Lab assay of single mutants.
Amino acid sequence: SQTQRTQDENEARRIAEEWKRRGYDVEVRNRNGHWEVTWD
């Protein structure tokens, strides 16, 4: 799996939607004030 971090929730949601469209299983988490998008 791969993880991308961002400070911006909207960006995190956009990234998550992009990977979901490509057929990946995606998880979005808030950790210590930043957002992590993990896909595999």
Rank of each mutant, 00 (worst) to 15 (best):
S1H: 12
S1V: 12
S1R: 15
Q2K: 13
Q2R: 14
Q2T: 11
Q2W: 08
T3R: 09
T3N: 06
T3K: 09
Q4W: 09
Q4D: 06
R5G: 06
R5H: 11
T6A: 14
T6W: 09
T6R: 04
Q7N: 12
Q7H: 12
Q7V: 11
D8F: 07
D8Y: 06
D8I: 04
D8S: 11
D8V: 03
E9K: 05
E9V: 06
N10G: 11
N10K: 12
N10Y: 11
E11Q: 07
E11N: 04
A12M: 03
A12E: 01
A12G: 02
R13I: 09
R13G: 03
R14D: 05
I15Y: 03
A16L: 04
A16G: 06
E17K: 04
E17V: 03
E17M: 05
E18T: 04
E18W: 13
E18L: 08
E18Y: 15
W19T: 05
W19F: 13
K20S: 09
K20Q: 13
R21N: 14
R21A: 14
R22V: 05
G23N: 02
G23C: 11
G23S: 01
G23L: 01
Y24N: 02
Y24G: 03
D25E: 12
D25P: 08
V26F: 02
V26K: 01
V26Q: 00
V26H: 00
E27Q: 13
E27R: 08
E27C: 13
V28Q: 01
V28M: 05
V28K: 00
R29G: 04
R29P: 00
N30G: 06
N30P: 07
N30L: 15
N30H: 14
R31W: 08
R31Y: 10
R31V: 15
N32Q: 08
N32P: 02
G33L: 03
H34F: 15
H34P: 01
H34Y: 15
W35D: 00
E36Q: 03
E36C: 10
V37G: 01
V37L: 05
V37I: 10
T38I: 14
T38D: 04
W39R: 11
W39L: 08
W39A: 06
W39K: 06
W39V: 11
W39F: 09
W39P: 04
D40C: 15
D40W: 15
